[in-house]
């Protein structure tokens, strides 16, 4: 099967890669670019673990073909902290005890990031809406919601 060339920008770095059409974005990030912080929990868009930001929108990277990301700007969890400083959401997740096994964490943080940036005024219910496509088996979500709320309210 012919490979396609694509150019994309991941975490502010430019990449040129060759992929089969069927390669999904999550597999490209993990297997080709070594960005294993993007976790693959189901492969079918039903758990949210593989969430990344694509052109500023949170998407399940298992629901995107890599070829579709030609020319796209992608942010993965590895691209959030800058100059050794955690993103406020990362810091809040750490401080509030919102992380246990950690497998859902990158997806949770990135969807929250997208949601907070687009919705300046949020109610309690909105924090839940933000992460309702992200499953977590460890935390019962309580401390995750608390962490997002903390950042949203600028505490």
């Amino acid at each position: 099967m012919m490979k396609h060339r694509l150019n994309l920008r991941v975490n502010k770095q430019d990449f040129e890669v060759f992929v089969k059409p069927k390669t999904t974005l999550v597999d490209l990030l993990r297997d080709e670019l070594g960005l294993t912080g993007t976790n693959k929990g189901c492969g079918t868009g039903e758990c949210g673990a593989c969430t990344v930001l694509m052109n500023g929108n949170a998407v399940n990277s298992c629901l995107v073909l890599a070829v579709e990301a030609d020319g796209a700007e992608i942010t993965t969890i590895e691209g959030l902290a800058s100059e050794g400083r955690l993103d406020p959401l990362q810091q809040a997740f750490v401080d509030e005890g919102a992380i246990q096994c950690g497998f859902c964490t990158p997806g949770m943080i990135l969807v929250a990031k997208d949601f907070l940036e687009k919705n300046p005024q949020l109610r309690e219910e909105d924090y839940k809406t933000a992460i309702s496509g992200n499953l977590c088996r460890c935390t019962g979500y309580v401390k995750i919601v608390k962490a997002i709320k903390k950042v949203a309210e600028g505490e």
Binding site: K22, T24, T44, G45, C62, L63, V64, L65, V67, E68
Partner: peptide, 26 residues
């Protein structure tokens, strides 16, 4: 046809849909 892909790609993943061609209209 590939538009959002949220139905198509899980179908491909589970091999419930096996097209020879995928046409991205985005």
């Amino acid at each position: 046809v590939l538009a959002g892909g949220t139905d198509l790609i899980p179908g491909l993943y589970r091999r419930e849909i096996v097209p020879e061609q995928v046409i991205n209209i985005k």
